[in-house]
């Protein structure tokens, strides 16, 4: 029982980090219907920027997180401008392929020796670790910090999307590009803002990931990126609460499979659940299925 509780706590930590990545996928998909395969690599860059901040330049941890977020926001906006905007009105698949190209670019460029280098790096803890025993389960201050940072960012995102002008514009553009443009919204700016926001969240996720699972390398973003994307689809892609719900489920599925069955099979269970859920609800748990006949 204690073991189960402990696994659930660990799963929550993983799920919360997935949520930060999944939000970027889901917002970008919601607004331009693009699976941004490069997002997992933006997450990787965020992890490295955070690592450089607190471990190499010894900045305070939270400042390092903010710098990583700003750095990745700029990266995200640049990627959108260079690789996706020229293809805005091309067939959707073309932008998907450039997304794969950008993903490869970030991975291989980061592996170059003058960039981050091809090797694994061990991340030192930015703060001394404290363990608390609560009801027989161990909770670390890392887990608490992850939870607090994620909840604060989610609250901020909620505020931004539902209570600011930019948020309103984002919702309008995701609803209908042309109508939004007719209402005087600068669609390109809004799309850039979405990329910046999503990338900043991924950077925060990356830094937290580097602290919680202290080993980073240039190809680290592939699997978490795929998982987070899967989580976003599980919850209903384009839907923000869905992304969070899907991520929390994904975290639990993975950790519980690893804890009770075998860590070899955690991806199998995760994707089997995805396929089964999609067969019952073709647009994900919280997604709205279109009027199409199935």
């Amino acid at each position: 029982m204690h073991y189960l509780l402990q696994q659930i706590v660990n799963g929550l930590q993983l799920g919360l980090i997935y949520a930060l990545i999944a939000l970027g996928y889901t917002m970008v998909y919601g607004i331009i219907k693009l699976i941004n395969f490069a997002h997992g690599d933006v997450f990787m860059v965020g992890a490295f920027l955070g690592y450089y901040g607190f471990a190499v330049y010894h900045l305070p941890f939270y400042l390092a997180v903010v710098i990583a977020m700003i750095g990745c926001a700029i990266l995200g906006v640049t990627i959108e401008f260079l690789a996706y905007r020229p293809l805005r009105y091309a067939p959707r698949i073309a932008a998907l392929i450039t997304a794969i190209g950008v993903s490869l670019f970030l991975e291989y460029f980061s592996s170059l020796k003058f960039a981050f280098g091809p090797d694994y790096r061990t991340v030192p803890r930015p703060f001394t670790e404290i363990h608390w025993q609560i009801a027989g389960t161990t909770i670390t201050n890392t887990q608490v910090i992850v939870a607090v940072v994620v909840v604060v960012l989610l609250a901020f995102l909620q505020f931004l999307i539902y209570h600011t002008k930019v948020g309103k514009a984002m919702r309008a553009v995701s609803f209908d590009h042309d109508a939004a443009r007719l209402m005087g919204i600068n669609v390109n700016t809004v799309i850039s803002a979405t990329f910046g926001l999503g990338s900043a969240l991924a950077a925060a996720g990356g830094t937290l990931y580097a602290v919680a699972y202290p080993q980073i390398w240039p190809f680290m973003g592939i699997m978490p990126g795929l998982k987070a994307f899967t989580a976003a689809v599980l919850g209903g892609i384009g839907n923000i609460p869905g992304a969070v719900l899907g991520s929390l489920l994904m975290g639990q599925i993975e950790v519980l499979t690893a804890g009770f069955i075998s860590s070899n099979f955690r991806d199998v269970i995760a994707f089997s659940v995805l396929i089964l859920v999609l067969l019952v609800r073709p647009a994900g748990l919280l997604g709205q299925a279109g009027p199409e006949k199935v």
Binding site: V233, N264, S272, I275, L278, L279, P282
Partner: peptide, 24 residues
Amino acid sequence: PILRLKSDYLGIATLGFVVIVKTA
């Protein structure tokens, strides 16, 4: 069963199948 899904949903479900086969 899976071809009832549309576009990106079909893509991610089949991608999931690749991960499953790889593990197998």
